[in-house]
């Protein structure tokens, strides 16, 4: 396994490198002290996971993340001394897989890395029912293929898992914490930002009008619900 650590503080890079070396002797750890070096390392080393600090001397961490996402789906954990809500949301929206606030413990960080990698790889088990259809949306549980109006749509693993949970319980309300526990893990209870961002991405990929969704519905303050047969004689639906 190859881990890229991007942080301008060499002590942090060294501490993480040494401690990971202890836990995962077979892991290779690459350090980068600024944004340019980080982008070069992503291209050159093709790491399995990236730990990315926001405050970098040359390019802003968010910008680095945006450029990484232009060409790679590698799991990225933002690590930042800024614990502001807005930074977290921005990082997640730009495609970060997780956001850890400094100072974090060594155990916490390794747990997070494992979780991120697990989420990025594992997909839900193949279901016996095989196929789900609602209007133009079609989900093939066996192949993990999703299509809208016959055209295939590419979903990330987390997006797929979220859609899987929603469609498997179509018509029922799924509570925030239920979804968070099932997709991210029990340590993410209450982290509504994660859920909100992925729901929005799903809507953008599946709904005709993401601002006025008819399939993936919000139950304010409670959770989300997939409506398999919306009672909307809307032109949007007719067109779809």
């Amino acid at each position: 396994m190859k881990i890229l650590i991007v942080d301008d503080d060499p002590d942090v890079v060294e501490a993480i490198t040494l401690s990971f070396g202890l836990q995962w002797p077979d892991a290779r750890i690459v350090g980068a002290k600024d944004g340019r070096a980080a982008l070069a390392a992503v291209a050159r080393e093709a790491p399995d996971v990236v730990l990315l600090d926001i405050a970098l001397p040359d390019i802003d961490g968010f910008e680095v993340l945006r450029r990484i996402r232009e060409r790679s789906d590698v799991p990225v954990l933002m690590i930042s001394a800024r614990g502001e809500e807005i930074d977290k949301v921005r990082g997640l929206e730009l495609g970060a897989d997780d956001y850890v606030t400094k100072p974090f413990g060594y155990l916490e960080l390794s747990a997070r890395i494992k979780a991120v990698m697990r989420r990025a790889q594992a997909l839900p088990p193949v279901s016996g029912e095989g196929q789900f259809e609602a209007g133009p949306i079609a989900v093939n549980y066996a192949t993990h293929q999703v299509a809208v109006g016959g055209k295939p749509v590419k979903l990330t693993p987390i997006e797929y898992k979220l859609l899987y949970q929603l469609t498997r319980s179509a018509g029922q309300v799924l509570l925030h914490d239920q979804l968070l526990t099932k997709i991210w893990g029990p340590e993410y209870l209450g982290e509504l930002d994660y859920l909100r961002i992925y729901i929005r991405r799903l809507r953008e990929k599946l709904e005709q009008n993401p601002q006025q969704p008819v399939y993936i519905l919000t139950e304010r303050g409670i959770g989300y619900r997939f409506d398999p047969s919306p009672q909307v004689a809307d032109s949007a639906l007719v067109k779809a």
Binding site: D9, D11, V12, E14, A15, I16, L18, S19, L22, Q23, I79, A81, R82, T101, K102, P103, F104, G105, Y106, L107, L109
Partner: peptide, 21 residues
């Protein structure tokens, strides 16, 4: 607080690693 957080990260990580040894 911000400036303290980064060095604290190093200390905590190192202590964690040492404790595991």
């Amino acid at each position: 607080s911000h400036e303290l957080r980064t060095p604290l990260t190093s200390i905590k990580t190192c202590v964690g690693a040492l404790e595991s040894i």
